[in-house]
């Protein structure tokens, strides 16, 4: 209420590389909910994947994006919790530490940019719950998904570390459950809901990362969920595309469809699977589509 329904859209790297289904479905549902997305006039990676090399490098990469965004006067909306938390943490850190801000700005100045700290960064789930509001979303539901039982996975970077993010409770996440409920589906509890997907070490240790995938999918299956719902491109890649790899590695069959929340919401808003990037899913959600 009273919030601007226009955002600067920060796409990140993982989505255009592998996860267009998230972008396609997010743009569709946001448009229908009256949200206007403005493209970033200039972009680079938020820096999260390179922070292991240098914290300062990450700060520069993030701050460049924040400085570009400030010139437009618009708040940023991200689909990726990794970009969200990185941009958000950088903004907070630099606002609180003047000396560091000056140092980072010396780097930015080289290309005519300056970080001042004037805008906010929000993840799509936060925009849906705080700015658009569940009431408005509820009014847009034309096809309540009453027959579905769904497990949600919000991902680490949406809420941790708590002292930097502070929008969702990492030990008892609620936002995604509320968002699932508003579609008419039933959110189910399952063991290890807040466990990490392992994406950040997928390239370094596939045994460990796929073990995390396996564990999650088994817990979701045990809870009797029809599907797993994600709001992060990296978590989606791990549980969806890499589900087949985990099945091979462990000689098991999970068969858990994994949908982006925006795909689910789109269905409930009456859109067709074909408009929402369902073709790109490798674990075919045939059963869910029959149930609704």
């Amino acid at each position: 209420m009273g919030m601007s329904q226009k955002y600067l859209f920060y796409l990140g790297c993982a989505i255009p590389y592998r996860v267009s289904s998230y972008e396609v479905s997010a743009r569709k549902v946001l448009e229908k909910l009256g949200v206007e997305l403005v493209e970033m006039p200039e972009f680079n990676c938020c820096g999260l994947p390179l922070e292991p090399l240098s914290h300062e490098l990450m700060l520069i990469l993030s701050a460049r994006n924040l400085a570009v965004a400030e010139q437009t006067g618009l708040n940023i909306l991200t689909l990726c919790p990794g970009c969200f938390s990185t941009l958000r943490k950088t903004g907070k850190t630099l606002k609180e530490n003047k000396a560091l801000k000056e140092e980072i700005n010396r780097h930015l100045k080289e290309s005519g940019l300056e970080f001042k700290g004037g805008i906010e960064v929000k993840h799509i789930s936060q925009v849906l719950v705080e700015d658009i509001g569940l009431d408005k979303i509820k009014k847009a539901i034309v096809k309540p998904l009453r027959n579905l039982k769904l497990a949600g996975h919000s991902g680490c970077h949406l809420s941790r570390p708590k002292k930097y993010i502070g929008f969702e409770d990492p030990e008892n996440p609620r936002v995604l459950k509320m968002l699932i409920s508003v579609t008419g589906a039933k959110p189910v509890e399952y063991l290890g809901e807040t466990e990490c997907c392992g994406s950040t070490i997928a390239a370094l240790d596939d045994k460990v990362s796929l073990s995390l995938v396996r564990e999650k999918l088994l817990h979701v299956k045990e809870a009797g969920a029809d599907a797993l719902i994600t709001i992060c491109p990296a978590c989606h890649m791990m549980y969806e595309a890499n589900q087949i790899r985990a099945e091979k590695m462990f000689g098991e069959k999970y068969g858990i469809p994994v949908l982006h929340y925006t795909q689910l919401l789109g269905l409930a808003m009456g859109m067709q699977p074909g408009e929402l990037g369902f073709d790109e899913l490798r674990v075919k959600p045939t059963k869910i589509l029959e149930k609704i």
């Binding site: 796409l11 255009p16 267009s20 396609v24 200039e42 972009f43 680079n44 460049r64 080289e110």
Partner: peptide, 30 residues
Amino acid sequence: SRIKKRESLGLPPLPKVNIEGLNKSLQGMS
């Protein structure tokens, strides 16, 4: 192929990157 596919999916082109500016900002970062 991914960049081309964006068009057929009805997605806008990827945002522009200022490579020169980016690299200038990274001077002194080893």
